[in-house]
Computed example of a mutant assay.
Amino acid sequence: MSIFPFISPEVLESSESSELPMFREYAYDFENNCLLLRDGNTYLVEGNEALRIWIFKALTTERFRYTAYDGAFGSEIHTLIGSGLHSEIVTSEL
């Protein structure tokens, strides 16, 4: 019996047991800030390496700057640089 009467127990059980799809992202060279190539073509990596690339891109992309990304992607760290706020406030915002 669920504490939410509008959600049946069968729905909860099926959603908990389903696996998420493997995360995939194009291979990325962090030092040169470009995609990696294999035989002249870009290629995909999976798992933790793909997650590492996604996190890097999300932190280094300014939110709302590029129309290719929606408002949920990117960061606003650039707004804190030179803001003159106390270091504890900046740390809290980060």
Rank of each mutant, 00 (worst) to 15 (best):
D29H: 07
D29F: 06
F30T: 04
F30A: 07
E31R: 15
E31M: 09
N32T: 05
N32A: 14
N33T: 09
C34T: 10
C34G: 03
L35S: 11
L35K: 10
L35R: 13
L36Y: 00
L36E: 14
L37H: 06
L37V: 04
L37Y: 05
L37I: 07
L37C: 04
L37Q: 12
L37W: 05
R38M: 11
D39C: 09
D39E: 09
D39P: 00
G40M: 01
G40L: 07
G40Y: 03
N41W: 11
N41E: 14
N41K: 13
N41M: 09
N41C: 15
N41R: 15
T42M: 06
T42D: 01
T42A: 05
T42G: 03
T42H: 00
Y43F: 15
Y43N: 05
Y43E: 05
Y43I: 00
L44G: 02
L44S: 12
L44H: 07
L44W: 10
V45P: 02
V45T: 04
V45W: 01
E46G: 00
E46A: 11
G47I: 06
G47A: 07
N48Q: 14
N48F: 15
N48G: 13
E49T: 06
E49R: 04
E49P: 01
E49M: 05
A50L: 01
A50Y: 00
A50C: 06
L51Y: 08
L51F: 10
R52E: 11
R52M: 10
R52N: 11
R52Q: 12
I53K: 03
W54M: 13
I55A: 12
I55G: 07
F56W: 11
F56A: 10
F56K: 02
K57N: 14
K57T: 01
K57C: 04
A58L: 08
A58K: 13
A58I: 07
L59R: 09
L59S: 09
L59T: 10
T60H: 13
T60D: 06
T61F: 01
T61G: 04
T61H: 05
E62P: 06
E62V: 13
E62I: 15
E62M: 15
R63Q: 12
F64K: 12
F64A: 05
F64R: 10
F64D: 14
F64W: 08
F64Q: 09
R65F: 08
R65T: 14
R65M: 11
Y66T: 07
Y66E: 12
Y66I: 06
T67I: 12
T67L: 11
A68P: 06
A68M: 09
A68S: 11
Y69N: 08
Y69M: 07
Y69R: 00
